[in-house]
Each structure stands twice: as structure tokens, then as C-alpha cells.
Simulated scan of single mutants.
Amino acid sequence: MNTEFGTYLVTQGSRSRGRATEDVVAAAIAGGVDVVQLREKGTTARERYHLGRALRERTRDADVTYLVNDRVDLAAAVDADGVHLGDEDLPVSAAREILGADAIVGRSVSSVESARHAVQAGADYLGIGAVYATDSKDVREEHAEIGTEAVATIADAVDVPIVGIGGITAANAPDVIRAGADGVAVVSAITAADDPADATRELAAAVGGAR
């Protein structure tokens, strides 16, 4: 798998200051984003499907990796490159069986034990967090603000790409990368920015400078 995970946008229209998610994604693509994940909590499956098809076209034209949060069926329906799974979603092995050997299957983890289990199950990459405090996602108390030391410990324990998520900005992204992450995933740092394209460029520069 040759996917670059440096800058990873997780979409959420409710945090986009009234702007359409498709417009935010277009701006992030213009800014050089590497991965787009369709999230859109609080919308119906049908709404996500129609948005998902539109984003599939944009990301395909730009050669940007396109993933769907949680929903394996939706990932298949919109022809995404893969899916990102959490604790309450289908197992990695089931997602792989449905989406096929070439699909990208990611898994959220917050400990060495869960990271090793996910890799053994066949996860292609891991999302680690929440690294810092965040209100973009409901996180169990034991998984909140795990810090860069936890990122470093998990990075040393596995041999797949890892992406830090949770409260990450251009200011603290270098610390996450230096701890061993291959990239950073953000919601508000791009979706709520005055200029999402510039915010993506700033984030990419922070990640690149720390590598």
C-alpha cells in the first residue's frame, strides 16, 4: 500500500461554518490534502451516499485517497478506496471480506494491545487518539488525551502507518510526527478554518517540516 497519510481530512458539515462539505473538500484538495474521510455524523445514510458519490468523483480526479468512516456498506456503495473502523463497527476481517484484498482498512486504537490486535487482524493503518483534548468526537475518558508518549509507544510496537487524531493543529502536529506518527487527521483545523485550502497547506508544511 503506497497511500500517503501526511494530511488527513475527516469531513463534518456541522463544523464547516455553514459551508458545503463538497466545497471544503475541494479547498482541501487544492491545498494538497492526502486523504479524505467521509464522516458527516448526524446525517442520514441516503444523504451520506449522495455526498459520498460526489466526493468520490472529486477525490478520484485529484488522485486523493478516499475513505468512509464506520460504514463498510457505504464504502462499497460509493466505491471508496476503503473504510475506517472504530470499536463498535464491523471487525477488520469482515470489512476486508466485503471490500476485497485491495481495499484500505483502518482501525482506531488507543493502546499497544489494541494496536497489535488490529494489525494482526489485517488493518492497513491505525488512527491513534485522541492525542489531545477534542470535542469533535465522543471519546471515552480512558481514550482522551493519550498524549504523544502513547503515540511513540504504539509506533514502536507496530509496523503499519499510524495517524494521530484528536485536537491536532498545525501548531502541535510536529510533536505528533516526531513521536512516530506518519500523519495527522483533523476535522476542525481544516473545516472551521477561515481558508480551508491555506489551512491544509499550513498543516502539510508542519508535517513535512517535522519528518
Rank of each mutant, 00 (worst) to 15 (best):
E88D: 15
V184I: 05
A28V: 06
I162S: 06
L9Q: 13
D124Q: 10
V10G: 02
D89A: 12
R60T: 15
A197Q: 14
D175H: 13
A171E: 15
G166R: 11
T134M: 06
V131D: 13
R53Q: 14
D70C: 09
A150R: 15
R140Q: 09
K137S: 12
I98T: 14
E202M: 07
A80R: 01
R71K: 05
D175W: 03
G208C: 00
A94M: 04
V207L: 04
H84P: 09
D194V: 12
A75G: 11
E22G: 01
A130F: 07
V187E: 01
A62P: 12
T11I: 02
T21V: 13
I168D: 08
A121N: 04
E4Y: 06
G82F: 04
Y49N: 02
V68N: 06
A210K: 09
A179N: 04
H143Q: 14
Y125N: 10
G82A: 07
H117K: 15
E141T: 14
M1I: 05
A123G: 13
V119Y: 12
D182R: 11
A95G: 07
G127W: 10
I104A: 09
E145P: 00
G52F: 02
R17T: 09
R71H: 14
A204D: 05
D73P: 10
V92C: 03
R60G: 14
G209E: 12
D182G: 12
R107D: 05
G167I: 10
V105R: 06
T21H: 05
D195M: 05
A103M: 02
V35I: 10
A152T: 09
G100D: 03
V160M: 08
S114G: 01
V207S: 04
D159E: 14
A173F: 03
A157L: 08
R53K: 14
R48Y: 06
G208F: 01
A181I: 01
T200L: 07
S93Y: 00
A121D: 14
P174W: 06
G32M: 11
D87A: 15
T7F: 10
G52N: 01
E202Y: 01
R60P: 05
P174F: 06
S108Y: 03
